[in-house]
């Protein structure tokens, strides 16, 4: 069976989805079901004091008994804030250690701050967290994160929420070829073909949020993404034919033509 193994657990789906930007919890639930994802990211935020405590909670819609919850550090700009957020997440999720680390460098690009990311990863790994880490598509720093002990390396394909697709497949290939841990493209996928390209490159999985949540029909796009990730993975495993730049090669027999 072709499964994704992360931190000692096997997943049938190689698509990881975010839970932000949906119209409401019902749309969130339906899109995530249609995606077939088993792992979903959540953000950790201050409780809105004074809000009706009877309001449904995201973890009631997406129960941790059914989904592997991946708390993130979105919005953190320092290693310290990211570590603090994930300690709260671990408490919130009853000791659950698998987390998504992201330390941002700039609010307009949301590009990762790699020095702070490396610093946070070291602290978190020492504290027993299993760290899936959002990072730049830099093969050297990706390797540093692996050496620190991160459970998965998650380079961006293009800017978070941009939908610009796979902008530097060559760097992704370098990261994939060097890594002994799963490499998951995190950020930048815009449509199904982008997800398929990521998987054809040899990525172990794809993490996306906006491509589904901001599609015209999020539930239908979630279904498309499930298929694209599966198709891309199968194509990668099958091995594509060599590219022939300057010569055609007919698929039909060249002999036995009538009138010859």
């Amino acid at each position: 069976m072709d499964q994704l193994h992360i931190a000692g657990r096997a997943y049938g789906s190689r698509l990881i989805v975010g839970t932000g930007k949906y119209k409401d919890f019902d749309e969130t639930r339906r899109a995530i079901e249609a995606s077939g994802a088993e792992m979903v990211t959540v953000a950790i935020r201050r409780m809105n004091i004074g809000q009706d405590p009877g309001q449904p909670n995201l973890l009631e819609v997406l129960p941790p008994s059914r989904y592997t919850i991946l708390p993130n550090t979105a919005g953190c700009y320092t290693a310290e804030d990211a570590v603090r957020t994930l300690r709260l997440a671990r408490e919130l999720l009853d000791g659950h250690a698998l987390v998504k680390l992201e330390v941002l460098g700039d609010p307009s690009t949301l590009f990762p701050n790699m020095p702070e990311t490396l610093k946070a990863a070291e602290v978190l790994v020492k504290e027993g967290f299993q760290v899936m880490v959002y990072c730049a598509d830099d093969p050297i720093q990706a390797k540093m994160l692996e050496d620190i002990g991160c459970a998965a390396i998650m380079p961006l394909a293009s800017l978070i929420g941009s939908g610009m697709g796979i902008l530097n497949p060559w760097n992704l290939r370098l990261i994939i070829d060097n890594a002994q841990v799963p490499v998951i493209v995190d950020a930048g996928v815009g449509t199904a073909s982008d997800a398929a390209i990521a998987m054809e490159l040899g990525c172990d999985g794809v993490l996306m949020n906006t491509a589904i949540a901001h599609a015209g029909d999020p539930v239908l796009m979630a279904s498309a993404m499930q298929k694209a990730v599966q198709a891309g993975r199968e194509a990668y495993r099958a091995g594509r034919m060599p590219r022939k730049l300057y010569s055609a090669d007919p698929s039909s027999p060249t002999t036995g033509l009538i009138g010859s």
């Binding site: 975010g18 839970t19 990211t41 959540v42 953000a43 909670n57 995201l58 997440a89 949020n209």
Partner: peptide
């Protein structure tokens, strides 16, 4: 004190 919950995020 900080009291936090899980919310939608990517």
């Amino acid at each position: 004190l900080e009291i936090v919950v899980a919310v939608g995020g990517g």
